[in-house]
């Protein structure tokens, strides 16, 4: 055994005071939190009243009414249509955009910067705002919803497609290039096949996302079951509203399960 010698540097302190930067962040956060709590006007009275109202809503909504199930089913179908059509076009458009965004396939640095920022903008604007814009542009109905979903899908898919493309193993592509293949051939022959399973998984996830957002898009008049839900709520037809909510719940869960099963198979 060696005799214990004390190292020259002493052990770190048990507690180290956070940096000034961390203090500033913490104080700003606390200020916003307390102000938010104050402005929401939270009181025990309101919470009790709120739960009573909620109870009343459910009491008058149960049992859900099936009288307009056919109309609701049709609206749900329209919602699904919007999601599927929107995602399909979104994914088709995402592919070339992703190739322009990815470091290893983009033809030029400037093209890449422009496309990355374009995609980031599409992603930053929420789907509901896209729907409001397109309702102004093309009028009420599913077309506005489809266009909103296309924008949302590009913002999501183009980014993840590009990230996947940047992760590819470059070697098979180099081999094709070394045998005289053109840029397009390398992309089609080596890059896309390797990314394909991931692209499918991302697209399926995007379908799930689009079904959920297509439900909400109807609230601003962009077609689908959301339109039915707002009118049912506004007219105090709570039994019908509950039916709609249950139908949405079942469909969203179904879509998620199917998509999950397919993704588990291909990945």
């Amino acid at each position: 055994m060696q005799t214990e010698t004390q190292p020259e540097t002493s052990s770190p302190k048990r507690f180290q005071s956070p940096s000034v930067f961390a203090w500033v962040i913490l104080i700003v956060f606390l200020a916003f939190f307390l102000q938010g709590l104050g402005s929401a006007d939270i009181s025990v009275m309101r919470l009790v009243k709120g739960s009573q109202n909620l109870g009343q809503f459910f009491a008058s909504a149960i049992p859900p009414s099936t009288s307009r199930l056919d109309v609701i089913a049709k609206a749900m179908l329209e919602t699904m249509n919007m999601a599927i059509v929107g995602v399909t076009f979104g994914v088709i458009l995402s592919l070339p955009i992703a190739l322009l965004c990815a470091r290893n396939t983009s033809p030029h640095f400037l093209v890449r910067v422009v496309m990355i920022n374009l995609v980031a903008t599409l992603r930053t604007i929420p789907d509901l705002i896209w729907a409001l814009i397109f309702v102004v542009a093309v009028g009420l109905g599913p077309l506005a919803g489809i266009l909103a979903i296309i924008m949302d899908t590009i913002g999501f898919c183009a980014r993840f497609f590009a990230e996947r493309i940047e992760e590819i193993n470059p070697k098979p592509g180099v081999a094709l290039k070394a045998s005289g293949a053109s840029r397009t051939s390398v992309i089609a022959g080596a890059v896309l096949p390797e990314c394909f399973p991931s692209f499918v998984a991302t697209s399926l996830y995007s379908v799930e996302k689009a079904v959920r957002s297509a439900v909400v898009l109807g609230l601003v008049g962009a077609g689908g079951i959301g339109v039915e839900l707002t009118s049912a709520m506004n007219l105090f037809r709570y039994k019908e509203a509950l039916t709609i909510i249950l139908v949405v719940l079942i469909v969203v869960i179904l879509v998620e399960q199917v998509s999950k099963a397919v993704r588990a198979r291909i990945m």
Partner: peptide, 30 residues
């Protein structure tokens, strides 16, 4: 010119998730 040069690599550099047949056909890309 490259189409007249055959390359063999340490890591084989084939496209893994495509068929063997397709990889051989890729010899014609150039």
């Amino acid at each position: 010119l490259r189409s007249q040069i055959g390359s063999v690599f340490q890591q084989f550099n084939l496209v893994g998730n495509l068929s063997v047949f397709q990889n051989v056909l890729f010899g014609r890309l150039g």
